[in-house]
């Protein structure tokens, strides 16, 4: 498994996807919030985290069939294809791209994959142009987590480059973790 120790990947795989159970599951009734019985019957539709869905789908024979979450379905894909830059990614899905990579496997027509790439291309251009000019980052539509990280990275790099071009001297600074530790301690003191 890739990224076995990655915190981000663990959070991504915690997102829920709709699944249909193909076999009876004795004693597992609690997985379906609307069920009253102890056993989970074959054919029930339940939303389960994708880590569970993936591993149950990989069994022989598969225990579940994975369906597309609604943000990757036709309707939303049309919105994204029309203009991806106006979408509120924060609301749509914090891990839109990452989860999409998992989901794309279950889309036989391969349309999810194309949408992901197109969306990324459109939005990447927007983010790139916003991060080299100084002002407009806050004016962007809310971004997904990975986009936010990328923007922050772009800003830091841009600053470092312009500093280097000006031949500025680099003053010695406090190490980041020391500074963060201090800041937090101060915040805790203020709360008391």
């Amino acid at each position: 498994m890739a990224n076995y120790l990655s915190i981000t990947d663990i959070l991504v795989t915690n997102e829920k996807v709709p699944c249909k159970f193909l076999h009876d599951l004795p004693k597992m009734g609690f997985m379906d919030p609307s069920a009253t019985e102890d056993d989970l019957k074959a054919g029930t539709n339940v939303e389960i985290p994708i880590w569970l869905a993936e591993s149950l789908h990989a069994r022989r024979p598969p225990l579940v069939s994975v369906e597309l979450p609604k943000i990757y379905k036709e309707t939303y894909r049309e919105i994204l294809n029309a203009d991806a830059c106006t979408v509120d990614m924060h609301k749509l899905g914090q891990y839109f791209y990452e989860l999409g990579c998992y989901i794309a496997k279950y889309d036989i027509k391969g349309e999810v994959a194309t949408t992901l790439i197109d969306t990324f291309k459109q939005r990447f251009r927007m983010i790139l142009s916003a991060s080299v000019s100084t002002d407009s980052i806050t004016a962007l539509q809310p971004l997904s987590t990975s986009e936010r990280d990328r923007t922050a990275g772009a800003v830091v790099t841009e600053k470092a480059l312009s500093g280097w071009l000006k031949r500025g001297d680099c003053p010695l600074t406090t190490a980041t973790m020391v500074a963060n530790h201090r800041k937090r301690k101060r915040a805790e003191m203020e709360m008391l």
Partner: peptide, 28 residues
């Protein structure tokens, strides 16, 4: 009772998941 094997599989996945998360926590 042959039908129980499915339940065993689900719990096994949960065990593996917990293990992965704990390891990731410690590693980070």
């Amino acid at each position: 009772n042959k039908s129980l094997w499915t339940t065993v599989q689900v719990r096994h996945s949960a065990l593996e998941r917990n293990k992965r998360c704990l390891l990731a926590y410690l590693y980070n």
